[in-house]
Design a protein around this nucleic acid. Sequence first.
DNA 1: AGTACGCCCTGGCCGC
DNA 2: TGCGGCCAGGGCGTAC
Length: 273
Amino acid sequence: MPELPEVETIKRGLRKKVKGKKIASIKILLPKMVRRNATDREVAHRARGKKIVEVKRRGKALLFILDSKDVLVFRLGMTGQMLWSHPRLALRRDTHTHVIITFAKGERILFRDMRQFGEVFVTTEADLEETLQMGAEPLEGDFTHETLVQITSSPMKIKHLLMNQRKIAGIGNIYSDEILFEAGIHPLRPARLLKDKELKMLHRAIVCILTEAIACKGDTIGQYRDAFGESGQYQNYHRVYQRGGDPCQRCHTPVKRIKLAGRSCHYCPRCQA
DNA sequence: AGTACGCCCTGGCCGC
DNA sequence: TGCGGCCAGGGCGTAC
């Protein structure tokens, strides 16, 4: 499931390949992947013939900035992939390939998404933030301790708050579990009751865990692959996620697994108070 | 403003 | 071997 580190890895890979290149055509094989107010025809029309001036990431969204001041946005949902397909690699399109972006010389990006929870749409650079409605970007310089203090002035459970894209962008179920373990904070704690010292730990954990995961080129649980079909390595470093029942690496207490609004949540009942 | 829950969707896994 | 049923969950809509 692509969260911030996985999307960042894909972004870095694709950026090298497509920055400065012109989109020859974009084919949308499954029109329902186009959500928001745009139709598949509108997306195709606004992308065709445009040059990609930059590839960026905002939270878990992958952004292709076009020379028309439009932005082509992909959200990968649970199982989305953006695969670079050199003509000589002849990556075959299959039932899960929903969008194909073609460049000159037959180079392509394939958007695959088995569970179809992802989406693609076009907006303008000016409307981007308004459209995405995302909160703080945790690896930007302006994400300070004070930012976190402000975000956490809420009665929400800290686990929910970390996964809320309008509060902090890019953190999903895996990294919220790992971050809270690293910070030693129980996932059900109301955010506004966290002490200043705990918020310092949390801030540090957010930056550390995400940075570490990017260095590992992401986390391959299930479908995730980078732009070149490569797996990430962070799954080998999970300390709680999907380790329910395993001994905690710090204190050997069995890691607990609970259900939280339909999502699984893993934590050490002893280390995380 | 929270939370809970259903929905979208498919492959993998379990039990019979 | 095969098949029904359940599970995973990001984000959104709805009800409370």
